[in-house]
Computed example of a mutant assay.
Amino acid sequence: MTFTNRLRVIFRSKASRTLDRLEDPREALDDSYEQLVRMLQDVRLGLAEVATAKKRLELQGQEMGARHQRLADQAESALNQGREDLARTALERRSLLEGQVAALRDQYTLLQKQQGQLQDNERRLAERVAAFRTEKESIKASYAASQAQVKANEAAAGLGSQMSEVGVSLDRAKDRIAQMQARAAATDELLASGALTDLTAPPDADLERQLSAGATSADVERQLRAMKDARASRQGRPAGSRGTGPDAWLSIGNGPDTP
């Protein structure tokens, strides 16, 4: 595999993993769930604002109701004192207040209706969020199990992006080993032929190496001649005992090793 092909395989595997992360349905489900939760929070915030406004109107209406009763008492007290002018003024103010109370009551009724609608929406949306959360976790668990199974199957079959990278690394290691072995063999041949000089070797090491090789060759030739001579001398004579005792090894290399 060439270097360009290796880069192509690695890039393809990394790009595939990036796309898998972008297309992960678990992230899409989490995003949808967060949107629903934000919607539920907005509905609850609106419900709290409506309830607050309704409570304000309720307190204002209670104050106006107390004033309405106080004006009635003042009109009756003025009439008992013979002050019809004051009684008339109190009744006029009371009549004007009744119109304000009517307008306030309409607003209060409208807010009460809105609050009821928001409460229904909040309850339905909360149920939907809870159901979606349950389904989301179930789908995520199923996806995780399927993903684990796919990875296990790909690993068993030697497939998948990670296994591709492992294969690329293995091929690269094999190439490097082959190159180093070839280089070692080549340098050995060059050293043996004298084309390269070992700078760390002692002086005249090449001569010592060649002399040693020649000595070994001469020793082999000597043993071969001794074997031939011993064989010729044994022809026609009964075979004698050979040095096969427990101490026979002590004589190895000290004399001709004849079979």
Rank of each mutant, 00 (worst) to 15 (best):
E221Y: 01
E23D: 09
A173G: 06
A218P: 08
L91S: 02
L196Q: 12
T89G: 05
Q107P: 02
Q235H: 04
S241W: 01
D204P: 05
S77V: 14
R38G: 08
L250E: 04
R83S: 03
P259V: 09
P25N: 12
Q100A: 04
E27P: 14
L19V: 14
A218C: 04
E92K: 15
D257Q: 08
Q117E: 15
R12T: 08
R93P: 11
P256C: 05
A184V: 11
R225I: 05
A239R: 02
K174F: 08
S233W: 08
A145L: 09
R124A: 12
A131Y: 11
A72I: 14
V50G: 10
A87K: 00
E23Q: 13
L111T: 07
L96H: 10
V101F: 00
L97V: 03
A48M: 00
N121G: 08
G61F: 04
Q149I: 06
T216F: 05
R56P: 03
E189G: 07
D106I: 15
A157V: 06
L96A: 15
I10K: 01
R222P: 08
A15S: 07
L211F: 05
A131R: 12
L57Y: 15
L97E: 03
E135A: 03
L199Y: 11
L96C: 13
R94C: 02
L91G: 00
L110W: 11
F3C: 10
A51S: 06
Y33H: 13
A195K: 09
Q162F: 13
S212A: 10
R44V: 07
E221A: 10
E98D: 05
D171Y: 08
L196N: 11
A48G: 03
R88L: 06
Q210G: 14
F11C: 00
D42A: 08
T89L: 07
T4A: 06
T244H: 01
A152H: 06
